[in-house]
């Protein structure tokens, strides 16, 4: 189940938080704290992109090589999955 669409992103002094609302709020009481890159990955996942789609987009936007992007995105998605958000 993907509950990312039920979350709201907000920025406080350069740090990003994803806060659950509606259905997501019934399942999670905490928030996810992210840096700017994490927030961008989160946004792309919210848009419905799959892992490869997120990797391709990051490579374009951040001039990062594929292995690094794969590793970062894989780690990030792993964390969301273990939290039950994906």
């Amino acid at each position: 189940m993907n509950v990312l669409k039920d979350m709201i992103l907000t920025e406080i002094e350069g740090e990003w938080y994803a806060v659950p609302v509606g259905e997501a709020a019934k399942r999670f009481s905490g928030m996810i704290r992210m840096n700017k890159t994490g927030k961008r990955i989160f946004e792309l996942l919210m848009e419905g992109k799959d892992q490869d789609g997120v990797v391709r987009q990051l490579m374009e936007e951040y001039e990062v090589d594929e292995a690094t992007a794969q590793s970062n995105v894989g780690d990030f998605i792993g964390k969301l999955q273990s939290a039950g958000m994906l």
Partner: peptide
Amino acid sequence: YCPEDREAFA
């Protein structure tokens, strides 16, 4: 207070 309505929450 976190509203249930998404717009109000945002």
